[in-house]
Design a protein around this nucleic acid. Sequence first.
DNA 1: AAAAAAATTTAATCTAGATTAAAATAATGC
DNA 2: GCATTATTTTAATCTAGATTAAATTTTTTT
Lengths: 198, 198
Amino acid sequence: MAPNSDESRFELQRDRVLKAAAHCFNQKGYSGTSLKDVANMLGLTDPALYYYVRNKEELVYLCYVRAADVGREAMQKAVAEGGSGLEQVRRYLRYHIEIMVGEHGPIAIMSEIPSLKPAHRDEVLELSRQHSLNFEKMLKVGMADGSIASCDVRMTGNAIMGSINWIPKWFHGDDVMARAIVDQFPGILSRGLAKSGN
Amino acid sequence: MAPNSDESRFELQRDRVLKAAAHCFNQKGYSGTSLKDVANMLGLTDPALYYYVRNKEELVYLCYVRAADVGREAMQKAVAEGGSGLEQVRRYLRYHIEIMVGEHGPIAIMSEIPSLKPAHRDEVLELSRQHSLNFEKMLKVGMADGSIASCDVRMTGNAIMGSINWIPKWFHGDDVMARAIVDQFPGILSRGLAKSGN
DNA sequence: AAAAAAATTTAATCTAGATTAAAATAATGC
DNA sequence: GCATTATTTTAATCTAGATTAAATTTTTTT
């Protein structure tokens, strides 16, 4: 709505680059996608990408940072809206998945961590760890308020996150499918959490 | 127990190669692992691998075929032992996960499909599709016998399989963790399926 | 213990694709 | 319209790592 006036052309273009890259990485993996693939997708030649990004590794890195942002925002939003722990979890799942399959595309490649250089890898893993901890916290809240049945939060978190992270592997931008995922996944993933009454 | 007399040294060594390769691929991805990595892991030099395998692509391919075998066997075993649909699902999950985190190692890389050449990719995708269909069939059996609540089998299958396929991404051979996964995952993943009474 | 076959090695290619450099084009401010 | 800055291109490197070839060692057979 707002003119979004700033966000120089540079920033915008850079975003497009990231999005295209994420798309490719998700489909063909880090090795499978050449910079040429990404560039062509935008009607550019490969060297042009170096204007926006230091190198290929940084491309993955930036995708990750954005993915982490997305996840964090979804979670904060869900928490801010309150409700029982279970409700928060359900909402978080929906928000996160919505972005994941939405028009902004799967900026979230979650499979290419090994491709990162150590410093970046550590940073990304830390972000991921943080996200997991926050999710586990939500589960605990739910257990405390009686909406979620007692469970091993670590394993439950791993199970649910895995399911979400895997989505880009099989979903490739079909609108009908996107809707189905958003409608179904939160329920499927959270149904097993509920305590009898909920 | 049986002398296992045949299985020429060749076959055995080839198995070791596949296992090592799968391990590397899971940890560092297709691009991230060089043939040298795999070879060194076995105390060999890279060219030696060509004695067992046509090329790198075939290495991934064979890993997939084995992964598919593993999944299929787990499923057949679970079905063979009968019980309600829900029980079959639970058992299948346990068997499959057991192998996945077990000593045979995660032969199951499920992330490198894009690296396969078209012919192999098609074959592997077909195996995967088949597996999914079989799983969906189990769900339907459960819905028919009243052990599983009505659900969208396609989406439910995707959710559960994703969670399993993601395991190799974060699990790297810690025995305690392995036990925890086997103990917890089947429950976590199947709890949401049960119809009230079960 | 020689010969044949199996397994692996060292040394030599070969290539895709990332990166860099230099040049060209487009956009913007004045 | 000119100068400056932004963007992209074409042409030129450079390198890791896959693959192949030839040579060597190890194992098996008889």
